[in-house]
């Protein structure tokens, strides 16, 4: 069921996920389209998330945005410094922010990183995690993981897991999507693009997500005038994904854009996406056990030991 409307305020709105936004020329959403988008969100009862560019918006835009309950997704590089206070999600595109940016303990952060940078700098995360409400790490080149990368990623997750365990012992409750989400979730909680959320672009058209707009502007799913028209919309639902519906890596992004890029189908994840998600799942299982050594912790939660990293390999048992 549709719950969220993401509105891109500009062609250069920050990427907050796996894709890159190569657009450099500002292309502000026309005010009438912004208002029509807000109206669409209101009548469809959708929570609106605004994605900001790096420059300050004109006053009438700010006024329109404040006319509705919403959340703000803002790049750490945004020139409108007042937004840093107001943002609900702040996005880092490199690791310098992790060390030097001013942080707020009540905010959620996104760190977009390549696997190479993550493998090199993951030790910087410990301190950062202790200062913020939540950190989502998005690896921007998951599709390039190979067997060596999986091994390294497993070791890194193990180290991060030890760090988080210590923080729990110290009375903190850090949230790192890669390790703590699976512990907290009882069912799949994925990106939801095309199912629980859709994106409105500055051209007045709806897209499955920001990445679909960047990749091909013709690949839209309706517009603010005529409404939504998602072809084969069932394929964005868990039930219609043969692999994901047999999976319990509940924290997986299940990125439909990456799915389409790698397997040509929005409902079918790549081997790499599955293995990475299962390494996280298994490390979450270890973390849960480790925390429980120190006392009672989420007694209802159970993460089973499994002998595979890609549910596809178990398809004959489904």
């Amino acid at each position: 069921m549709l719950q969220y409307l993401i509105i891109l305020l500009d062609d250069t709105s920050t990427s907050y996920c796996h894709y890159e936004n190569p657009k450099k020329d500002a292309g502000l959403i026309p005010l009438n389209i912004l208002k029509a988008g807000i109206r669409f969100g209101m009548v469809e009862n959708l929570m609106i998330q605004f994605v900001y560019p790096d420059y300050e918006l004109p006053g009438e835009y700010k006024e329109a945005i404040e006319s509705i309950d919403h959340s703000k997704i803002v790049s750490s590089l945004c020139n409108d410094k007042s937004l840093a206070d107001e943002a609900d999600v702040i996005v880092f595109h490199d690791w310098s922010g992790i060390s030097y940016a001013m942080t707020f303990p009540d905010k959620s952060y996104v760190l977009r990183t390549t696997k190479a940078k993550l493998f090199e700098r993951y030790l910087f995360l410990k301190e950062f995690l202790s200062k913020v409400a939540r950190l989502n790490i998005v690896i921007t080149d998951i599709e390039t993981f190979d067997d060596g990368d999986y091994e390294q990623y497993k070791l890194i997750l193990h180290t991060l897991s030890e760090n988080i365990e210590k923080m729990y012992v110290d009375g903190l409750a850090p949230q790192l999507n890669l390790l703590t989400d699976r512990i907290m979730l009882k069912e799949m909680n994925n990106c939801g693009a095309g199912d629980t959320n859709i994106t409105l672009a500055p051209n007045g058209k709806f897209y499955i997500c920001h990445a679909f707009y960047i990749e091909n502007e013709d690949d839209c799913i309706g517009d603010v005038k005529r409404g939504l028209d998602i072809k084969n919309k069932q394929l964005y639902k868990l039930k219609y994904s043969p692999i994901c519906s047999h999976c319990d890596a509940y924290q997986c992004k299940r990125c439909v854009w990456l799915n389409r890029k790698t397997t040509l189908e929005v409902n079918t994840p790549s081997h790499e996406q599955c293995v990475v998600a299962h390494l996280e799942r298994n490390s979450s299982c270890e973390l849960l056990k480790s925390i429980r050594k120190h006392g009672k912790f989420l007694p209802e939660t159970e993460i089973q030991e499994i002998d595979y990293l890609d549910p596809f390999d178990k398809r004959k048992e489904w």
């Binding site: 397997t263 189908e265 081997h271």
Partner: peptide, 15 residues
């Protein structure tokens, strides 16, 4: 590219 074969190998009647 084995990833491009995955949809075919998991296709079932219901989906």
């Amino acid at each position: 590219d084995k990833n491009r074969l995955r949809p075919f190998l998991v296709l079932d009647r219901l989906s």
